[in-house]
Computed example of a mutant assay.
Amino acid sequence: MDLCVTIKGVSFLLQTGMGIVGNSAVLMAYAHVVYAERKLLPVDTVLCHLVFADLMLLLTRCVPQTMTVFGLRDLLNDAGCKVVIYSYRIARALSVCITCMLSVLQAATLAPAGPRLSRLKAMLPALVGPAFAALWFINMAVCIAAPFFSIAPRNGTVPAFTLNLGFCHVDFRDNLSYVINGVAVSLRDFAFVGLMLWSSSYILLLLHRHSRQVRGIQRSAQSAGAETRAAKTVVTLVVLYVVFFGIDNVIWIYMLTVAKVSPVVADMRVFFSSCYASLSPYFIISSNKKVKAKVICAADQNQPLVETEESNVK
């Protein structure tokens, strides 16, 4: 196997494996929290949905991509490509939307309580569920065009204005469809990224003001610790997303300027666009006390459990 192919395959394999393990661990930790406490805080509910969307993204994009890199062919037929590409587009859209929702929710939580804002804060837990339903419905409708352009790879050359994903092709038929699709996706993503940057900047401003107000007041500082940690987690997730989003879109803009996209360029975009989904769960584990405690508890109990099962077999 060629050295470049090997490096690419190992990179995708590590990224996919780490991402699936990390996101699955966070989901199981939250499942245990729900089982023990019967409820989740609004921020934890949003984080749980974000992790689910990222896991869905990895399963529908990185898993088949990794298999293709290692030489597996004819993984999907036309119907399979339509389902996988549609699911990936929804997962990717949900990832940016939910990250934005997380940032806006945290900004509203930290904002100074006025008459109107106090009522809004009281309504936030009840609004989370309908917001998720709306995001799913909107993104399913926006991404509905993706299946119509998705086909299984054909023998021979790749037509112009086609995204060669390796395991599937997205054939836009003409330049107009190709550009309209790219511009529509980019405008949606930039709108949500702009909103999350604005809300994250507001969070940082509020944290700065709050730290000055409670300086020297130990009790107030301790009570604000949980909100401060949650806010810092949200801001860091936003920064992480924006960095990889920037790299992703630089490559995407280049892809819109050429008729035939090199598989190497497409692979680079897939890798960087999936880095957020692979790395974010580990940051959530390290910064969220509830999740971290459940993960550590599960790791500590795993070895004694194995030993007990072995002794029972004996």
Rank of each mutant, 00 (worst) to 15 (best):
Ser200Trp: 06
Phe161Lys: 03
Trp136Gln: 10
Asn288Asp: 14
Val250Leu: 10
Ala29Trp: 07
Ala259Gly: 09
Val63Asn: 01
Ala277Thr: 14
Leu163Trp: 15
Leu240Asp: 02
Asn302Pro: 01
Ala226Thr: 11
Tyr178Pro: 01
Ala122Ile: 03
Thr68Leu: 00
Ala226Cys: 09
Leu3Asp: 03
Glu227Gly: 13
Val242Ala: 03
Arg269Lys: 13
Ala152Met: 02
Cys48Gln: 11
Ala299Asn: 09
Met255Ala: 06
Tyr35Gly: 13
Ser220Met: 12
Arg89Cys: 08
Val250Pro: 04
Cys100His: 01
Leu3Lys: 01
Ala160Thr: 10
Leu76Ile: 01
Leu204Gln: 14
Ala277Ile: 08
Val128Gln: 09
Gly194Asn: 06
Ser278Arg: 01
Ala113Ile: 00
Gly216Ala: 04
Thr233Phe: 04
Phe12Met: 03
Val234Trp: 07
Asn302Arg: 11
Cys62Thr: 11
Ala226Trp: 13
Ile251Val: 11
Leu135Cys: 10
Val5Thr: 02
Ala160Glu: 09
Leu27Arg: 12
Cys48Val: 00
Ser87Val: 05
Gln303Arg: 14
Ile85Phe: 04
Leu127Ser: 15
Gln106Cys: 07
Ser103Lys: 02
Pro112Cys: 03
Thr157Asp: 15
Ile90Thr: 08
Arg116Gly: 05
Pro112Val: 06
Gln301Cys: 13
Leu195Tyr: 04
Ala191Leu: 13
Leu237His: 10
Tyr241Gly: 02
Asn288Lys: 10
Gln15Ala: 09
Leu47Val: 10
Asn302Val: 10
Phe161Val: 00
Leu256Phe: 07
Val10Glu: 02
Phe148Ile: 03
Tyr254Gln: 06
Ala184Cys: 07
Ala126Tyr: 14
Leu120Lys: 04
